[in-house]
Design a protein around this nucleic acid. Structure first.
Lengths: 120, 120
DNA sequence: TGCAAGCCTGCACAACCGCGCAGGTGTCGT
DNA sequence: ACGACACCTGCGCGGTTGTGCAGGCTTGCA
């Protein structure tokens, strides 16, 4: 198991074999980056509150989201823009109202297993 | 169910009842903040790789972590400092080597249910 | 048709973050 | 005791991010 990329070959190691094991555990760099980006979307209290609201009560309008979270509507709009660009939420127009809903199952599961359903 | 905080009472709403439902779904603001902070720790590719390595292969030294992730040791040190301040990892000294291990069960579960054990 | 509501955008500001480099401290081997 | 090693810290830089304000656009209602 020589998973060590060649660009870092001439270095001392403490445990040696464990390094390869760790590299295997880290896995594909692209996947790590993708997940880091996803976690970054959850790293803002405003966005996290929005996603929680959308996850628990389904489609919601921007104004109601602003009211529920205490944010101003431009902030909500901007947050939803990011989330929409990431494919996490989708908005559907109904007259002059746009209702957003959560579309990403990975985010939904992280919310469910993570922040909800936990005593601590 | 009038969960709407008094500071935002004189506003129009689209759905009304759903707003209270959403507020209930969001829950305690402090908890949301705490989780957002936790997700923020996972939002960096370097830190996420470190945590994955620690989670899959157990205690690891700084040098080995730097080798496994491709980061330089000051970067690893700084990342571990943040994680240690947050109570996510702990370091144990063994001579001039410090081996770190994952101590936060919430982070471990998010890693397990989230980035690992998933086909997409 | 005119007005208000709902939503989006641009701009400018401040704050934060991650990184690399250089240098410091404590520990082990000789 | 001396040098090498493992780890940590301070400093400064560049890039990114969240936010507020002001204004524009589309839609519904009177």
């Amino acid at each position: 198991m020589h998973l060590l990329p060649a660009d870092r070959a001439g270095h001392r190691t403490i445990d040696g074999h464990r390094v390869c094991e760790a590299i295997a555990g880290i896995g594909d760099t692209g996947r790590v980056r993708a997940w880091a980006e996803l976690f970054g979307l959850l790293a803002d209290p405003g966005r996290l509150a929005l996603l929680l609201a959308l996850h628990t009560t389904g489609p919601l309008a921007v104004t109601d989201l602003a009211l529920a979270t205490g944010m101003r509507d431009p902030a909500v709009s901007q947050a939803l823009r990011l989330l929409r660009a990431a494919g996490v939420v989708e908005g559907e127009r109904d007259g002059r109202v746009v209702r957003y809903r959560l579309t990403d199952t990975a985010v939904a599961e992280v919310l469910e297993h993570g922040v909800l359903g936990r005593a601590d």
